[in-house]
Amino acid sequence: MTFHITIDGRPVPVAPGQTIGAALHAAGVRSWRSTRFGGRPRGLFCGIGVCFDCLISVNGRAPERACLTEAEPGDEVTTS
């Protein structure tokens, strides 16, 4: 059944099979990264792994595409 991940320590509910990007978006978290030069907010855009806008660090790993990465119970993600 549903479980939780955390973003910067805050819990976000996840339905099994959802990607991290989908769970965040559903919870109203629509951006989790800012750009290198303009500091502009970024979240989901293409939703299918093409645009890399949705990069996010999961459990301290190098950033990966939130739209492709299926959420696992207890995942800790951080904004950047």
Binding site: R30, S31, F45, G47, I48
Partner: peptide, 13 residues
């Protein structure tokens, strides 16, 4: 590039 603007396929996915 504002969050909330998605591709049509992104919304579908």
């Amino acid at each position: 590039d504002l969050p909330g603007v998605l591709t049509a396929g992104g919304a579908q996915a």
